[in-house]
């Protein structure tokens, strides 16, 4: 199957972000990384390809600053990478629109499954996958933990509040990925060196025949009006005992040690 993984470059989510005097997040000193949910999506797509054949293409909206992220993807299972540089896009609907247009031009064959992270670790809107499917007029399955091929489509394990649900969807479809029970792989030195030499396809809004009226500031349906910092959390202690009884015993000990009980 032909698999597309849409990725977003975000600030390293392990670094706490502060707001500048202008009220905007201060991101200059924070390393850009591939959104964690997108790395899970890529790992799932790479495993799918290794088990069932096909190829994996990664696609992002962004300029040259996204090249390290795309090379990183090429070193851990992606076969092809594309970026579409377009600075005027400013809401998820516009991003989804550009991705829909770019997905038709990236790669030689139509994609069977389009993987998106369930959300990004910066804006956390969780909208792009669903909006992309809407624009393309294809099914979307959200919160997916596993993908398996079936005749004419895929079988998906979906995470729900209560547990899991197994669903089927025809191809092409969009799936949004949550954290599976494995970690994204590390690149080997060989795959990293090979990724350095692989081409990265350049797309433009005009080149993919995108209508500026559909993605520019004028088209934006959602506008950010303010950002505020969350209240500071008090520091705590993590109890890591495996057994519940042992964890309770440890908690009691700590409380007693602090003369709280």
């Amino acid at each position: 199957m032909e698999l597309l993984v849409c990725i977003k470059q975000v600030p390293d989510d392990s670094v706490s972000v502060s707001l500048g005097a202008d009220g905007a997040p201060k991101l200059d000193e924070i390393a850009p990384v591939v959104n964690a949910f997108d790395t899970y999506a890529l790992e799932m797509a790479a495993r799918f390809k290794e088990a069932h054949g096909g190829s994996v293409t990664v696609l992002t909206i962004g300029g040259d600053a996204t090249v390290p992220a795309l090379r990183s993807c090429l070193s851990v299972g992606a076969d092809h990478a594309y970026k579409l540089a377009e600075e005027s896009v400013c809401d998820t609907q516009g991003i989804a629109y550009l991705l829909s247009k770019a997905s038709a031009k990236a790669g030689e064959q139509p994609f069977d499954v389009i993987f998106c992270g369930s959300e990004s670790t910066d804006a956390s809107s969780g909208q792009v996958g669903a909006q992309l499917a809407e624009i393309l007029g294809i099914p979307v399955v959200t919160n997916v933990l596993a993908v398996e091929p079936r005749e004419g489509g895929v079988t998906l394990k979906q995470e729900t509040e209560e547990g899991y649900r197994v669903v089927e969807a025809p191809c092409p479809c969009v799936v949004t990925i949550v954290k599976p029970n494995y970690e994204p792989r590390y690149p080997s030195i060989k795959s990293k060196m090979a990724a350095r030499k692989m081409p990265i396809g350049d797309l433009t809004a005009a080149g993919v025949e995108a209508d500026a009226a559909q993605f520019g500031p004028e088209a934006a349906k959602v506008r950010r009006v303010a950002i505020s910092a969350p209240p500071q959390r008090q520091s705590g202690v993590k109890i890591q005992e495996k057994e519940a009884a042992e964890a309770v015993r440890r908690a009691m000990e700590m409380l007693a040690g602090q003369k709280l009980i």
Binding site: D12, S14, V15, A31, V33, V34, A36, T39, S72, S75, Y186, P187, S188, I189, K192
Partner: peptide, 12 residues
């Protein structure tokens, strides 16, 4: 083999 931790998450 040699695996490369070249992103903050992989290093961490």
């Amino acid at each position: 083999d040699v695996l490369v931790a070249d992103t903050p998450a992989l290093k961490r």
